[in-house]
């Protein structure tokens, strides 16, 4: 496993994430891991207790985790949202837009590629979970 990239200033959670089922089953954990088939909305009533949500990508082509991330941010989650697993550098920009602010890839990124990925897009066309202003809003500002 490679290093975790974090784009936040607070201290990382120091204990392992539990499954959604374990968390909902009266756990005191403040870190939970979502698998692709889990319903992220099940966590919404408990967001205040959560400091870290890991979203697992067992295979990079399974895009359910992008929706999970946005749903949590739309519901007001402000803790760490970490993409874990088969996460590729060419996916970072979109993941960031969906609300991820930490990445724990199976394979270490080349940091030059990471920098290029985040600097790639001068603008964005649509709203997402980040604070970027879409082109269509700028056009009519």
């Amino acid at each position: 496993m490679a290093d975790t990239l974090r784009y936040r200033d607070d201290e990382p959670v120091d204990h392992p994430a539990v499954t959604v089922d374990a968390f909902l089953d009266q756990s005191n954990a403040s870190a939970v891991r979502i698998e692709p088939g889990d319903d992220a909305r099940a966590l919404v009533p408990h967001l205040e207790r959560l400091a870290l949500v890991e979203v697992n990508f067992p295979a990079f082509g399974d895009g359910r985790g992008y929706s999970s991330a946005r749903i949590l941010r739309e519901a007001g989650f402000e803790g760490e949202l970490r993409a874990v697993g088969d996460v590729l550098v060419d996916q970072l920009a979109y993941m960031r837009r969906c609300g991820f602010d930490a990445f724990e890839p199976d394979e270490q990124f080349d940091m030059d590629d990471v920098k290029a990925a985040f600097e790639r897009w001068p603008e964005v066309y649509q709203s997402a979970a980040d604070s970027r202003t879409p082109i269509w809003t700028k056009r009519h500002a």
Binding site: G61, G63, Y66, R97, C98, W121, V124, Y125, Q126, I135
Partner: peptide, 12 residues
């Protein structure tokens, strides 16, 4: 415009 580089719907 909406669908171009859509961050959530590129791994459908």
């Amino acid at each position: 415009q909406w669908s171009s580089f859509h961050p959530e719907f590129s791994y459908l």
